[in-house]
Design a protein around this nucleic acid. Sequence first.
DNA 1: GACCAGGCACATC
DNA 2: GATGTGCATGGT
Length: 221
Amino acid sequence: MSNLAQEIYESLRTHYGPQGWWPAETPLEVAVGAILTQNTQWGNVERAITRLRSARLLTSVALASVDRGQLEELVRPAGYFRQKARRLQEFSQFLVREHDGALEGLFQQGVAAAREQLLQLNGIGPETADSILLYAGQLPSFVVDTYTARILKRHGWIDDEAGYYELQDWFVAQLPEDTQQWNEYHALIVRVGKEHCGSRAKCDGCPLQYRLERPLETSME
DNA sequence: GACCAGGCACATC
DNA sequence: GATGTGCATGGT
């Protein structure tokens, strides 16, 4: 195999098989989930999304105009409910205002322009933006998260101080631009991260059979 | 009861 | 520019 990033991908893919991300029914639902899952376990996000679906609020127009207090109550299970209600609403209002309520319009501008617009919005940082672009828009935008940082830093593959874009570049520089692979790759990293790279080291049985250099380093910056 | 989870914004030095 | 802190629920 030609490089480490490819090698890791092959190992994970062989061990776990396809992950079938993102767990959502529509692009908008992907975006809603991306905002709700910030620093939050997915199970809690699902509760919130179920409640939004029951309230028929999984459209940009509905989210943009719903009463803020009502939205807060619905997303409460996902935590940070005041912030997240605001973020969902401002994101939806942006879609309605700038793109006729459709994510398609956002994505049609291309990755770079769409990403820039997303990053202007309150509560949408690099990971949330990349998740929306990759999983809702199927655009080539590699997603980095805390597990990605832990795995690379614990193995000593990247500098401890590396930030989001250095981590992202580590992958992008080694991989062909392949949306489908990047989709699977991030999902696989979350999978192996949950099982073997939590705050406490659980390296037994990890499909990445490499020697750790810094077993307990968890910082992202 | 402490600790953690698929981040981000903002204040302060 | 870098470090620190608030945000909040639900599971282990």
